[in-house]
Amino acid sequence: MNKNLPLMSMFYLISLMGMISSNNWFMFWIFMEMNSLCFIPLMLIKKTKKGGEASLLYFIVQGISSMFLLMAMINEESSLMDVSEPNSSLITVAFLKMGAGVFFNWLFLLSFSITLSILLLILTLQKLSGFFLLLLSQAGLSYLMLIFIFLSSFMAMFINMKQNLFKSMLTVSSLSNTSWLLTAVVTTYSGWMFYFAVYSFSLVLSSTMNNKYLDQNYRNSDTLENPLLFLSMGGLPPMPGFFPKILILMNLSYSRLSLLSIFLLLAACVDIFIYLRFSFTSALKNNGNLMYCKAVTTKSIKMLSLSAVTMVTMMAIML
């Protein structure tokens, strides 16, 4: 273990706290830079073949986004993209940091060349900076936002059809979940928190379970827990992922955003179809190497995952 890891992770957490509690854009920019500067060494802790390239790519993207943030700070009045409201440039920066919509490209490329734990951090905690930016700029449901939500859900739907690898499936599902989270962050704050908590929890659970299946063809995985987690992320009713989705849909129906909810539901249906296709192959397959499977996933991890899933479900029901 790297001896700088505790310090770096502390600074990392401080940067996240600072971002949400800063009262002007300059402080926000400083904490954002601090965040990316803490995170890039974290990416390099485990030496991999493409690690340097990945960290460089990540650095470039973060640099571009912080540059845009600075520019938006400087000429707030004269930005050309303000179609409906003044902070559309800030929203664009947030999309760039999250990899939403057409900016999904860098995240997808990055996902092939980093380890699973770093990927999970990018998909959960690193997305927080973008959402904080949206929250602080009090972004509403503008045309730009709607376009990006539609683009995210549709791109995720289409890209998901062709994915076999575990990590790329996680990345693409994060894109479709980003569209839900963006919808939530501009309509209901509590729904966004609930969705984010359940989604992050499911992702972390998948990392504990799936260590041995890294970079393998996902269709050949032997366990049943992964399909369950993916179905949860897709939003099949008894799973925990269903409850935040129905909460957001209820909020959308209260505010009469029927078109948006129909689009989101359509994308979720296709996602569930794809995940079900995978889970059929892994659930109905005659497991030849059952002994190997037992050696890999120990009983305690299974129990842990099951209890965690039920706990999250109960939490969801109580809310």
Partner: peptide
């Protein structure tokens, strides 16, 4: 139609940097 559309979108995404 979904599969053909996904081929199109994938070519768009995999178009490198």
């Amino acid at each position: 139609s979904f599969t053909s559309a996904s081929v199109l979108v994938m070519s768009f995404v995999e178009w490198s940097l």
